[in-house]
């Protein structure tokens, strides 16, 4: 599909260039990884304290750490009719803190990503004259506004998609397979489309978020099909990452705590780099669909010249 230069002269090349930029500038993934790590640690601290308290009551912490969730949590169904020990009450309080910090972490992660995404895209675009800090200052505001709009789009379009998928007349085991796949596919398209919209702001040096969304909707017809295929492919890669990465993160026995932490942080960093790659590819798609505006950008010229 992407090897049809006659039909799509720049799409495949631009996407490949975007991906190469993500490979070359892999340290940019740290900008996506570090907030994730800090927020995760903040939420994990109360869980450590809960585990410590629960550990005084026997094997429960170890069983939970081994992933034996259902068998262990069922024991907590007895709590409603007995006064729980103080350690359990303490663990419960810690769990509430962890959940609260998790909820705040989601908000903080979203905020951090939207503030940093412009800087990351700016650096990915290849302009060496622009430092990460200056790109951050240039794009933090517009990208934050874009993030808010993107959230609205995801909530509205995502809900609509979920409802439509749920209404599909498919029953039985086929339903359990087809409906989640369709739902995931829909979110993959939505995410890819929003990434291209975000990237187009940097590609065109245009901070208007609404306009970027509109531009992404009106992608040239010749690009739509390869873009959709690309987004679905990226969605599949993301799903594989979540499945394999999640399995890998819990595959190491809890007793080997240091090894488990190391493996899991490698997985998390891989996830951050995957996002970096997606942004690089989105930048490529945005460039492939851009007109004369792009040519006037010095950053774009250098970006193109570099390769």
């Amino acid at each position: 599909m992407m090897r049809s230069p006659a039909a799509f002269p720049s799409f495949g090349r631009e996407v490949a260039l975007g991906l190469q930029a993500a490979v070359r500038r892999w340290p940019l993934a740290l900008a996506l990884y570090l907030p994730n790590l800090v927020l995760g640690l903040l939420s994990a601290l109360p869980i450590f304290l809960a585990g410590e308290a629960l550990g005084q009551l026997g094997p429960w912490t170890a069983r939970l750490a081994e992933g034996d969730l259902a068998n262990t949590l069922i024991e907590f169904s007895a709590l409603r009719q007995a006064s729980p020990p103080a350690e359990l009450r303490a663990a419960g309080g810690d769990l509430v803190w962890a959940l609260l910090l998790l909820a705040l972490g989601v908000l903080a992660q979203g905020t951090a990503y939207n503030l940093l995404a412009g800087a990351v895209l700016g650096r990915l675009a290849g302009d060496d004259d622009v430092t990460f800090g200056s790109a951050f200052r240039r794009w933090a505001g517009p990208m934050f506004w874009f993030g808010f709009l993107a959230l609205m789009v995801v909530l509205l379009a995502g809900t609509l998609g979920v409802v439509l998928v749920a209404l599909l007349p498919v029953d039985g085991s086929a339903s359990l397979l087809v409906k989640p796949l369709l739902g995931l596919g829909w979110f993959a398209l939505l995410n890819g489309w929003l990434e291209v919209a975000r990237a187009s702001m940097v590609a065109r040096s245009d901070p208007r978020a609404l306009r970027a969304l509109g531009r992404a909707i009106t992608l040239p017809g010749r690009v739509w099909l390869p873009a959709i295929v690309l987004w679905l492919l990226l969605g599949l890669v993301g799903a594989l990452y979540l499945g394999l990465g999640g399995s890998l993160a819990v595959a190491v026995p809890g007793a080997l705590a240091l090894l488990a932490v190391a493996v899991q942080q490698l997985v998390a960093f891989a996830g951050a780099w995957l996002k970096l790659a997606r942004l690089g590819i989105a930048l490529g798609v945005a460039r492939a669909t851009a007109g004369p505006n792009l040519a006037t950008s010095s950053a774009s010229r250098r970006y193109t010249a570099r390769f």
Partner: peptide, 26 residues
Amino acid sequence: LAPALALADRWLAFVQMLLQLVGQVG
């Protein structure tokens, strides 16, 4: 302490995955 550390580590893995999934949209 090892079980508590291991439990916190599992939680950390879950939270990091979740944040990547829902905190980096678009």
